[in-house]
């Protein structure tokens, strides 16, 4: 099935089996290997990408559902020559060990900060009608869809806290 998706700013036309997940389209058809396949069931978050600016699990979405959508992967977030502030903060805070979950963590963190800036509530929000303060408890709760088997969580939170401070 013919599908056109704008990936990292470039329109990409694909002819796909309807069963192809967005993740497989990115990795196997567009050779963008940054997004990782961890569990392939939406439980680990390693496949997180931004679709029209919103973070989702790319393993739980069909590529054909995204005809006309704009997808940003870790490759579009930033590269060696132009690191995104979140990538820089992950480096500075040593927020990874093996690195397998990191692209998903960074895409998720970028999407999460946007959600917090729009004052979306979370389970950790004590006052649903007021302004949300991005405490460590809020960051932990909002990032619970991204698992790190090396357990670099304290450093991941520190990195996100650094960037959140810059944005605020």
């Amino acid at each position: 099935m013919k599908t056109t998706i704008t990936v990292n700013g470039q329109a990409r036309s694909l002819d796909l089996d309807t069963r192809t997940s967005l993740l497989d389209a990115l990795r196997e058809h567009l050779n963008l290997k940054g997004s990782k396949k961890g569990c392939d069931h939406g439980q680990c978050g390693a496949c997180t990408v931004l679709v029209n600016g919103v973070r989702i699990n790319s393993c739980l979405s069909l590529a054909v559902m995204h005809d006309g959508d704009e997808v940003t992967t870790i490759e579009g977030i930033g590269g060696e020559e132009n690191l995104h502030p979140m990538q820089q903060a992950f480096l500075e805070q040593d927020a990874f060990q093996c690195g397998y979950c990191t692209p998903g963590q960074i895409c998720s963190a970028v999407g999460m900060l946007k959600e917090a800036a729009e004052n979306w509530p979370s389970q950790a929000s004590e006052d649903l009608t007021g302004a949300i303060a991005l405490t460590d408890a809020e960051i932990r709760e909002r990032m619970s869809g991204n698992i790190c088997r090396c357990s670099a969580y304290p450093q991941i939170i520190a990195a996100i806290r650094d960037v959140a401070g810059e944005v605020a």
Binding site: T48, I56, N57, L60, P121, Q123, S125, G145
Partner: peptide, 22 residues
């Protein structure tokens, strides 16, 4: 959030941020 806070509380207690976005 202001009139049906039980609904917001219930939704944010389910799934992950990524799942709730879809």
């Amino acid at each position: 959030r202001s009139r049906y806070s039980v609904l917001t509380q219930a939704i944010v207690s389910g799934g992950s941020g990524q799942l709730r976005n879809k």
